[in-house]
């Protein structure tokens, strides 16, 4: 039996249909990545899988007693709420000091246990969230854009950790990402999403599928554009974003490059989105 399965699900935001006709299943020990441009319904899909969003049609079947470790795209902890990392791990169920220390050490943030949650940087918060997800010994980890805010080294360590978990305890992993290069190396299976499942298969098969190329550009051209953007982004923010990023996501399948650009623009939006949150944290 599958760990978790979606059968013909449809998700709506108000009158707008975000996802339709999605069938997918995840088995023990699999690393599956959901890939898609901005607004393609990736986050809605994982939220529906963890039960945080209702489905308008179809159903979601979880294996009996399935333990899900969930890392949401981001959480905002108001500085007016005093909460140490250690205390956060015991929400809602108390965990032992040993389990907490072990989980924090595994994600490389053992030294942060007595820090306030609202003082953490984006990357630190991401690791703490992952530690919390690991504590319940999950059968499946569901991670929404888990590497945002992590530096290159952190990202590599992060994927190694997922590999270790899979080989040590057969933990399945469902990732949402638009980091093409990482996806290609770390996943067993890729699901390409854009309001519906466009294509699905091993990274090799998907990267050669015409549907994928329509979304992310052909061959290395698309990937390289993203790579380059990544570097730009970390070093000189603000520069190089001026050229016409298509934020409207017109789903123009004929022109893959626009989408790649739009996607890259999305990364930037995310990064920018954290800044006011941080300023807010300071007041």
């Amino acid at each position: 039996m599958h760990l978790i399965e979606a059968r013909g699900i449809e998700i709506r935001h108000g009158s707008q249909t975000v996802l339709s006709g999605v069938d997918m299943a995840i088995d023990r020990g699999e690393i599956v990545t959901v890939l898609g441009p901005n607004g393609s319904g990736k986050s809605s899909l994982v939220r529906a899988l963890v039960g945080a969003m209702p489905v308008a049609r179809g159903r979601i079947i979880r294996r009996d007693g399935l333990r899900i470790g969930y890392v949401p795209q981001r959480i905002l902890i108001d500085p007016v709420l005093p909460l140490t990392v250690r205390r956060f791990l015991s929400l809602p169920d108390r965990v032992s000091d040993d389990a907490a220390t072990d989980a924090l050490d595994r994600t490389g943030v053992g030294d942060l246990r007595s820090r306030q949650m609202s003082d953490l940087s984006g990357g630190q918060l991401q690791r703490v969230l992952l530690a919390r997800a690991l504590i319940g010994r999950p059968d499946i980890l569901i991670l929404d854009e888990p590497t945002q805010g992590l530096d290159q080294l952190g990202e590599a360590a992060f994927y190694r950790l997922l590999e270790d978990l899979r080989s040590a305890s057969g933990t399945a992993v469902l990732l949402v990402s638009h980091d093409l290069h990482v996806v290609m190396s770390a996943s067993d299976r890729v699901i390409c999403l854009n309001g519906h499942i466009c294509c699905e298969g091993t990274p090799q098969i998907v990267s050669e599928a015409p549907e994928y190329r329509a979304l992310f550009g052909t061959g290395t051209a698309g990937t390289l554009a993203l790579y380059r953007h990544d570097h730009n982004h970390s070093h000189d923010d603000g520069h190089g974003h001026g050229h016409s990023h298509d934020h409207t996501h017109s789903h123009d399948h004929a022109n893959g490059h626009d989408h790649a650009d739009g996607n890259a623009g999305h990364r930037h939006t995310h990064a920018a989105g954290r800044v006011p949150a941080k300023e807010d944290a300071g007041t």
Partner: peptide
């Protein structure tokens, strides 16, 4: 504990 979890993040609360 439930109230606190919900306050920290509704999504994490639902997942729990």
């Amino acid at each position: 504990h439930a109230l606190l979890t919900t306050t920290v993040s509704g999504e994490l609360a639902v997942a729990s």
